[in-house]
């Protein structure tokens, strides 16, 4: 289970005293303040909170897309907060799978080519890349849509392709920013069922930002942020509060 403000030696992800401050002109805006967090392998965590609470900033920091003002983030024993930009790029390629609200597929590439993108950064042969892509598309149920371009797919199918792209290189964890935000309820349910399957069947670790309580309820744990501070941690399935909330 997720531990907040706890010593997390056995955790996959350890966040300690994390601050993120943006400067706008003369004004300093504290987006995240003293955040502590531990996430274990195979956990499914949802971050909720009002706009501007720091959810996406936290996701960007965890994904190595941004650097904190203070504090540390350690993933599988690697502290990423002091990595150079180049190292961080390599680290992202190996450890992070991104899933975005608007799918962000490359429109001129078909489903196969979109999913193959992360593998182009590896030393896999063409045949090995093909095997991996076909396996990833099978997991998301789109093995028969490999040659389809994004414009030929529904929103739900596009997000499935994006999920296949996120998992194809077998990353350490997945970061999802409003993955169902552009989908209707039925498609959102399908995507969440797929995410649950990734956790249950393939032991993936997922950290997800969402505004939707029904979507968040599918996660193991829901963490609420407000004004850059974790204010509540709740076991989604048992509807109980976790201790030690900052």
């Amino acid at each position: 289970m997720v531990k907040v403000d706890a010593a997390g030696e056995s955790s996959l992800i350890n966040v300690r005293d994390l601050d993120k401050t943006y400067r706008r002109g003369e004004e300093e805006i504290d987006v995240l303040q003293g955040l502590n967090l531990d996430v274990r392998q195979g956990e499914f965590v949802a971050f909720m909170g009002p706009s501007g609470s720091g959810k996406t900033t936290l996701l960007n920091l965890l994904g190595g897309l941004d650097v904190p003002t203070r504090g540390s983030i350690t993933v599988s024993g690697d502290e990423i907060t002091h990595m150079s930009a180049g190292k961080l790029t390599e680290w992202r390629a190996r450890h992070v799978g991104f899933i975005f609200q608007t799918y962000n597929l490359i429109p001129v590439l078909n489903a196969f080519q979109n999913v193959e993108l992360p593998l182009l950064l590896t030393k896999l042969s063409k045949a090995e890349r093909r095997d991996h892509v076909e396996a990833a598309l099978s997991v998301v149920g789109l093995a028969d849509r490999m040659k389809h371009f994004p414009r030929q797919l529904s929103g739900g199918q596009e997000q499935r392709v994006a999920i296949a792209r996120a998992i194809v290189a077998d990353p350490t964890f997945l970061l999802c920013d409003e993955p169902t935000g552009d989908l209707d309820r039925k498609r959102a349910d399908e995507i969440m069922t797929l995410m649950e399957e990734l956790v249950a069947k393939y032991h993936k670790t997922i950290l997800m930002v969402t505004h939707d309580p029904l979507v968040a309820a599918r996660a193991h744990t829901i963490l609420h942020l407000d004004k850059g501070v974790l204010v509540e941690a709740r076991q989604a399935s048992q509807d109980t509060l976790a201790g030690g909330v900052a």
Binding site: G63, T89, F98, I106, L117, P118
Partner: peptide, 14 residues
């Protein structure tokens, strides 16, 4: 811009 950002996010270098 967004597509290039996604490429960089998934690990393509500058």
């Amino acid at each position: 811009t967004g597509e290039l950002a996604v490429l960089k996010a998934i690990g393509f270098s500058d």
